[in-house]
């Protein structure tokens, strides 16, 4: 167990610690609301596990800077222009007026090359993985829905049994 291993894995251990704390709360408490709190902690630790896996060294959030977006867009447009130019050039031998279109296409293609260079220069940015973020966004919203459902059930149980103490509820069930 070297220091390097510890530096590479401490995030996972932290996640496991939080997960086990949530698990302990669910096991050891008998108040139903406290159980919901434990499940919430467990759930958040799973989010953190996924987010931790998506991180890349020296990376940044997967949001592309506006300058690069602009460059990429114009590169894309001129790429289409260049393709049209190529077709026109091919047709230049057949039709005379095709030559004018081909020239125009060449100018656009030059412009496109400049934009592509800009993209290449900025392409060194390292982005962290966007996929775990997306999955966890969905999971958070589903999680709050299930939490709300669990709490509604707690309220209903309290209405019928007069208590939210798990052992007391079991006693009442056996006694009836």
């Amino acid at each position: 167990m070297t220091l390097e291993t510890i530096a590479g894995l401490y995030n996972y251990w932290m996640v496991i610690f939080l997960m086990m704390t949530g698990f302990y709360i669910v096991l050891a408490r008998k108040n139903l609301i406290k159980s919901v709190i434990g499940l919430n902690i467990f759930q958040t630790s799973v989010f953190l596990l996924y987010i931790t896996m998506g991180k890349v060294n020296n990376g940044t959030a997967p949001i592309i800077p506006p300058a690069i977006v602009e460059a990429q867009k114009s590169a894309h447009e001129s790429h289409a222009g260049a393709a049209a130019g190529g077709v026109a050039e091919h047709g230049a031998g057949v039709a005379e007026h095709g030559a004018g279109v081909a020239e125009h296409g060449a100018v656009v293609a030059e412009h496109g090359a400049g934009a592509a260079e800009a993209v290449h220069a900025a392409g060194d940015i390292v982005y962290s993985n966007p996929l775990p973020s997306v999955l966890m966004l969905t999971a958070i919203v589903v999680g709050i829905a299930t939490t709300a459902l669990a709490l509604a059930l707690v309220v209903r149980i309290r209405e019928d049994y007069g208590t939210v103490d798990e052992e007391r509820i079991l006693e009442l069930d056996r006694g009836e």
Partner: peptide
Amino acid sequence: LDAPDVAFTE
């Protein structure tokens, strides 16, 4: 950990 969208939602 570079996940601002998830951080806002959480």
